[in-house]
C-alpha cells in the first residue's frame, strides 16, 4: 500500500505540475488543486500509514495505547488544508479578476510587466 500510494502521489504531483505549465489560467487553478492534494497526501504518507486506530483516547482512559496513528501529521495536514483552501479561494477569484481585466485567459498574453514598455508609455 505504501509504495502504491507513493506512486499515486507522484502521479498527482506530475499532473499538478503539468497543469501549472498550461497557458490557460483556468487550468492553472486545477493544477493548484491537484498539487494541494498531492502535498497533503505526501505529508500523510511520510507520517506513515496506520489503519483503524484514530488518535482519540477512548472514554475513561488517560492515554492512547499503541498502536495508534501519529496525530502530528494529521494536525499539520489539517492546518495545511485550511490554509490551502484560503489561498486557493483567493487564487480562483484572482483568476476571475484577471480574465475580466485582461480580457484573455492565455498566460502568454500576460507578459507586459516583465518587459519594459517603450519610452512614453508609463506602464500604469
Amino acid at each position: 500500500m505504501t509504495v502504491l500510494l507513493a506512486v499515486v502521489i507522484g502521479l498527482l504531483y506530475t499532473l499538478g505540475f503539468y497543469m501549472l505549465l498550461r497557458r490557460s489560467i483556468v487550468k492553472l487553478i486545477i493544477g493548484l488543486g491537484l498539487l494541494g492534494h498531492a502535498v497533503n497526501l505526501l505529508v500523510f504518507l511520510a507520517g506513515r500509514l496506520t489503519a483503524g486506530v484514530p488518535p482519540v483516547v477512548p472514554l475513561g482512559e488517560s492515554a492512547l495505547s499503541a498502536p495508534y496513528a501519529d496525530p502530528i501529521p494529521q494536525a499539520l495536514i489539517l492546518t495545511a488544508i485550511v490554509i490551502g483552501f484560503g489561498v486557493q479561494a483567493f487564487a480562483v477569484v484572482l483568476i476571475k479578476r484577471t480574465y475580466e481585466v485582461l480580457g484573455t485567459d492565455d498566460l502568454n498574453q500576460m507578459v507586459s510587466t516583465d518587459r519594459e514598455p517603450p519610452p512614453g508609455e508609463d506602464e500604469e
Binding site: 494541494g36 502535498v39 505526501l42 502530528i72 487564487a91 484572482l94 483568476i95 485582461l102 500576460m110
Partner: peptide, 28 residues
C-alpha cells in the same frame, strides 16, 4: 493583476515545495 498573478502562482509552487520538504523532514 498581471504582476500578482505571476507572484501568486510561483509562490504557491514554493509553498508546495516547502510543505513537501516539511512532510519529508518529519517522515525522516
Amino acid at each position: 493583476i498581471e504582476g500578482a498573478f505571476k507572484y501568486v502562482s510561483i509562490n504557491l509552487v514554493s509553498s508546495a515545495l516547502f510543505l513537501t520538504g516539511l512532510g519529508l523532514t518529519y517522515g525522516l
